[in-house]
Amino acid sequence: MKLNSEEIEILKIIEENHKISAATIASMVMSNEEKVRETIKKLEQQKIIMSYPTLINWSKVEGQEHTIAMIEVKVTPKRGVGFDEVAQRISRFPEVSSLYLMSGAYDLSITVEGRTMHEVASFVSEKLSPIESVVSTTTHFMLKKYKHDGVRFDSGDEKDRRMVVTP
């Protein structure tokens, strides 16, 4: 879909911070508030804006730690539907937080989130592996998150060190 430069500007601004008000966006793109609201609504309806998730560092919250695994899956594609059918099927599980079709040594890359390692393990053995087209799975448990969606975790080393007034 072809968008104009103002629409692209608006997307870039809310991609960085969706809490910013329509009035402020309007100032930033030299437009008016009403038009910005309409544009955003249109982009939502067109499913160009998919959702407004919030990035939370759960590992900092006691008792809320997550176990995350990245799973490489080899599947047998089916005539007529290719990888889509099995990919759609897997993507419906709520444990699956992302799913991509990959080039290279395996076919699907899946991120699975669970409360415990046991939860993730049972998802793999009871839900994922038994699917007919799934040939094999390799599960990698994530040990620590350093960066996610462009945001660095624990990036306190890059604070503002500038002097208050400089020429």
């Binding site: 500038r162 002097m163 208050v164 007034v165 400089t166 020429p167």
Partner: peptide, 14 residues
């Protein structure tokens, strides 16, 4: 400005 706490600076030339 440097002697005060909680200042938001729009005085920075960088």
């Amino acid at each position: 400005a440097a002697s005060m706490e909680g200042v938001i600076s729009l005085g920075v030339g960088e």
